[in-house]
Design a protein around this nucleic acid. Structure first.
Lengths: 214, 214, 214, 214
DNA sequence: CATGAATGAGGTTTCATTCAT
DNA sequence: TATGAATGAAACCTCATTCAT
C-alpha cells in the first residue's frame, strides 16, 4: 500500500508499566488478528500498533501463541461481553423489545465485538479448551438467563408463549446475521440494510411475543 | 537430439486430465483454505490433498493467489449455491415451510457450504471485486426472488403479511446462527442443538406466516 | 576476518541425490560444530561449507538439532572409529608396540578424529542417550578387547604382567594427552612435542611390557 | 529535593562490595561458560547465578567478552593452578608417589579444575594470546619443574631413569584421561572407574620409577 | 507433466546491550 | 548501583516459487 519509505522518526524509547504495556499489546493484537487472521499477522504489525519494537513484545509474552491465548481468554471472559445483549425487565412489551434491540445492535456495531466474533470464527480452533469453557460457562449460561427472563415476563403477562421462549437463540439470530454481513461486506456497504434489518427484527419480536387478546 | 521426436500424445485426453486435476486442486484448496485460512495453508497441504506434488500445482496454476481467486470465483458463482435455500411453492403452508427448512438445513450441514461461508468470512477481503459482484448479482438477486415468492404465496392466501415478507433475511437468520455455531464449536458438539433449533425455526416460520383466521 | 564483500558468484543450482547431499552436510557439520561448538555454528556456515543455501538444508534435516544428532550418531558408530587403535598380534614385543603406536598416533593426527573428540567433550550433553550407548557398546567393548589381546600376548610370553594389563586405558593415555594438547594449542604449536611424546610413549610401553628375564 | 542530602555511604565498603560482586560474577561465569560454552551462555544465566539482574552485570563488566577474558585470565594465572600436581620430595618412593597421586586426583575431582580445563578445550581460541602466555609461562614451567624434581630424586637414588624422567607429561597422562572421561560421561558414571584407574596409575608409577636392585 | 531439491525472502524468536526509572 | 523494559541485529526456520532431472 504505502510504498514510500517511512522517514523513521527516532521514536524515543518509552518505558511503561508492564501491565499497561500488556493491555496495549492485547488491544493491538485483537485488531490485527481479527483483521488478518493469526498467521497473516506479523509480530511487527502487533508491535507497531502497540507502539514498541518487535523484540519488545517478548519481554511481556513468550510467543505469538501466548499473545493469542491471552487475548482469546480476555475476549471470552464474561466481563468482555458485558451483558448488554440481555433481555431486560420493563413495563410494556414495547419497552422491553426496544431496549433489547438497542443493546443488541449497539453491540453489533461495536468494532471490538465484531473483531472478537471474527476471531472466534476464524481462529478458535487454536485454543479448543478456551472455546469449550466459554461455551459451557458463558454462552449457555447467558442463554439460560434469557430463557428465565422470558418465563418471568410471561408470568407477568408481558409476553406470550412462542418458539422464542423455547429457544432464546432465535431472539438474536437476525442480529448475528447483520454482524456476519458486516464482516463480509464491510461497515459502509451494510449501513442501510442494517437499519432495515433492525426495524424488521423489532417488529418480528413484537409480533411473536405480543400476548393474544382474550 | 539424435533420437526420433516423441509422438505427440493425444491432446484431447490430456486436456481432460488437466481439467480433472484442476477440479481436484480447487476442491482440495476449498477444504484447506477454509480450515486454516489463506496464509496458514501451504502449497504442500493443497498438493497433498489433491494427490500430487507441490511443484505439480504450478503446472495448473500460476500461483497460490490464482488458486484462491479461481476457488472463490467458483464458490461465489450462482451454480455453486444451487438454489436449495429457495422458498418454494406448495399447496399448504406446512408443506412450504417443511420444504424450506429441509433444504436450508441440508445446506447448513453440507461441509462444502460451511467451508465456503467460512472462506467468505475469513478471506473475502482478498478479492473485493469478486465479493462485490457476488453480493449484487447473486445474494441480492436471491433475496429478491425470495421476496417475490413470498408475495406470490400471500396473493394465494398461503401466508399472511409479516416482517418476514419485508426482509427475507429473517427467513434464514436462525439457520445462519446454526451454521456459525457449527463453525465455532464443530460438528459433533452442535448435533443436538441443531435439531432443537431446526424445530423451533420451523415453528417460528409457521407462527409468523400462518394467515389470521377471519 | 574477511571483511570484503563476497563477489557473489551466481552459484548455479546443483541438484544432488538426497543421500549424497546429506553426506556432505554431515561432513560440513562435523567440521563447523567441532571448530566453533554447536551454538556458535550458524546454519549458514554449514550450508556454505556443504555448498548449498541455508534453506536447502531443511530439505534434508528438520532442524539444527537433527543435524547434530545425526552427526553424533555417525561419529559414535563403531564404523567411524575404525579399529585402528587396536593392539594387534605380532611376533615380537617391539613389533606389537610399534604397530600400536603407529596406529594410535595416526589417529591422533587425523583431523576427523580430533573433531569428533572435541565434539564429544564440548557437546555430548546434548544427546546423553547416544553417549551412554556409545560408552557401553563401543568404548567398553573396545577396552575389553584390548585387555583380552594383552592376556593373549602374555600367554604367549610376549608381554609380562603389569598395571597396563589390568587397565587398558593406561595404554593410550599419553596419546589422549597429545590429542588434548593439539586441541588447545593447535597443530603447528604441538608438532615437535608430539614427536617427543610419541617416542617416550613407545619406550614406556616397552619398559612396562617387556618380560623379565629369568 | 526538599529533603536533606543523603550522607555519602562509606566509600571503602562500596569498593569492597564491588570486588566481591566481580568475584561472584566470575565464579558464576566459570560454571556457566564451562557447562554450555561461551556462545550458548546467556548474560541472564550468569546474572541469575551471580544473584543480580542482567543489567547489573554491566555495572561491573563492559561486555560478555570482557567477562570471558577476565575469567580466562584468572583461570590461567599460576595462582589458580595452585601447585598441587607437583611431584614433591619425600623419604621413600612410595611416599612420593602416594603424595603425587593424592594431589593429582584431588585436582581431577575438583569441579573448578574440570570447569577450567573444559573451558580451555572449548573456548581457548577466543583469547589466543592468553593461551600462548599460559603455555609458555605456566605449563612449560611446571613441566620443567617436574623434570628437575625427578632429576633431584634420581640423584638421591629414590627413582630410576625411565621414560617418565624424560617426558614429565607421562606422569600425569592417566589423570588427564580420567578428567576427560569425567567431562564426557559425568561425575556419577565415572566414580568406580576413577578409583580403578587411580590405583593402576599409582602402580604404574611405582613400577616405572622403582630403582633396579643392584 | 511431475517430482522434489534448491533458492531467497520473510517470519518468529533470541539475546547482547542500552537506558529510563 | 540496580532493575528490567526496550532495542536491533542476528539466528533459526518456513514456504512460495523455480528449475534440474
Amino acid at each position: 500500500m504505502s510504498s514510500t519509505v517511512a522517514p523513521r522518526p527516532p521514536a524515543r524509547r518509552r518505558r511503561l508499566a508492564a501491565e499497561e504495556r500488556m493491555r496495549q499489546i492485547i488491544e493491538a493484537a485483537l485488531i490485527e488478528f481479527s483483521e488478518k487472521g493469526f498467521t497473516a499477522t506479523r509480530m511487527d504489525d502487533i508491535a507497531a500498533r502497540a507502539g514498541l519494537s518487535k523484540g519488545g513484545l517478548y519481554a511481556h509474552f513468550k510467543s505469538k501463541d501466548q499473545i493469542f491465548e491471552t487475548l482469546l481468554f480476555k475476549v471470552l471472559s464474561p466481563s468482555f461481553n458485558n451483558r448488554k445483549w440481555m433481555l431486560d425487565d420493563g413495563d410494556t412489551l414495547a419497552e422491553v423489545v426496544d431496549a433489547f434491540i438497542a443493546h443488541t445492535y449497539d453491540r453489533v456495531t461495536d468494532p471490538d465485538f465484531i473483531a472478537a466474533l471474527r476471531l472466534l470464527i476464524t481462529e478458535s480452533h487454536r485454543a479448543p479448551h478456551l472455546v469449550d469453557y466459554w461455551r459451557r460457562e458463558v454462552l449457555d449460561t447467558y442463554l439460560k438467563e434469557q430463557q428465565t427472563m422470558l418465563e418471568h415476563c410471561r408470568a407477568r403477562g408481558l409476553v406470550r408463549h412462542s418458539p422464542l421462549t423455547q429457544q432464546a437463540e432465535l431472539l438474536m439470530a437476525p442480529a448475528l446475521y447483520a454482524a456476519i454481513t458486516r464482516m463480509i461486506f464491510g461497515e459502509e456497504a451494510t449501513q442501510a440494510s442494517l437499519k432495515d434489518l433492525r426495524r424488521a427484527h423489532a417488529q418480528l419480536l413484537m409480533e411473536l411475543l405480543e400476548p393474544v387478546e382474550a
